[in-house]
Design a protein around this nucleic acid. Structure first.
Lengths: 161, 161
DNA sequence: TGTTATCGTTCGTGGCACCAACGTTAGTGA
DNA sequence: TCACTAACGTTGGTGCCACGAACGATAACA
């Protein structure tokens, strides 16, 4: 939805969930555009950044740490491995696992992505002053804290016997 | 991405674009869950709300007003029409157009959706005080104003001669 | 040893936003 | 009046992101 150019109604345009969704839409577009100039997606970045931060790990662990679904992780790693940004080696101590690690090229790509990302943040927050940016992130953090913790006990609705 | 339960890294978790995206994710989940209890989606709601606010209109006009892409509008209206929430009649004065209008059942469904929606907003903003809620919406509005207007001149990159 | 659990993989779904192409129909200019 | 342009609705596809179901292989535990 990137074209309310003509006329937009007022009934829902003031709802917090709508504002949030639209703002996130802009953020996503800015970031995705920056990433795509480096032939990357959000998944690609999150994979590389997680590897950089925690070091080599199994695909399942990477999934948990990055918040990427294991089944999507497969494709993400495939792509990164094809481009030599990442290396897949099977764990000798547990033959179920693959150990994924960052290559030098992967590290370079990650730097580029981080640079892009910083620019995107600035473009996103352009209309806000420094204090306002801080207030916004603080409010959003409060929201996330609440829902992340509160929604931890939101599972297992009778998955059939 | 609704499961950072185990361990989440810190490198990008503080980026505004990430906070926004995650917060929007929670908002979307809350709203979508509420809607799905009434067999509806965001598109369905936006269609009905736009009809209620502006009255009967062509599909193209509804698309412009609601921000739903015309090609998605087709399926949205198909579904709503199948469930008798909306009526499709061809415009006698312009045979290209269909005139879409809200039925009584559609109006009732819209009321239900609006009730659900209000509850979702409250659940979303639960951790924030009244003033904080207002500050958040104000900051988000500023962001949107900027990008909506500023990005108006972001089109037509040489669409081939 | 048998049972349970984890890991990687494939395939499919859903929501949202978009694009390309096509046939139909309305308006406009020459 | 006729050609051209533009709008309309429709179909069918793309991409990103988040999930779910199922399966074979392998480990760990009772």
């Amino acid at each position: 939805m990137e074209n309310p150019s003509e006329e937009t109604p007022a009934s829902w345009k003031s709802l917090p969930s709508w504002l949030l969704t639209r703002a996130a839409g802009h953020a996503h577009r800015l970031v995705a555009d920056g990433f795509s100039s480096l032939q990357a997606t959000g998944y690609q970045y999150r994979l590389l950044a997680t590897l950089e931060e925690f070091g080599p790990a199994s695909q399942a662990a990477l999934g948990r740490r990055s918040g990427i679904h294991v089944s999507d992780m497969v494709a993400t790693i495939n792509e990164a491995a094809d481009r030599k940004l990442v290396e897949r080696a099977s764990d000798p101590t547990d033959r179920r696992r693959n150990i994924i690690s960052l290559t030098a090229a992967g590290k370079r790509q990650l730097w580029q992505l981080e640079k892009q990302l910083a620019e995107s943040q600035d473009e996103l927050l352009a209309p806000l002053s420094q204090e306002e940016r801080q207030r916004l992130t603080e409010l959003l953090s409060r929201l996330l804290d609440h829902h992340d913790h509160h929604d931890a006990g939101r599972e297992n609705r009778l998955p059939l016997p």
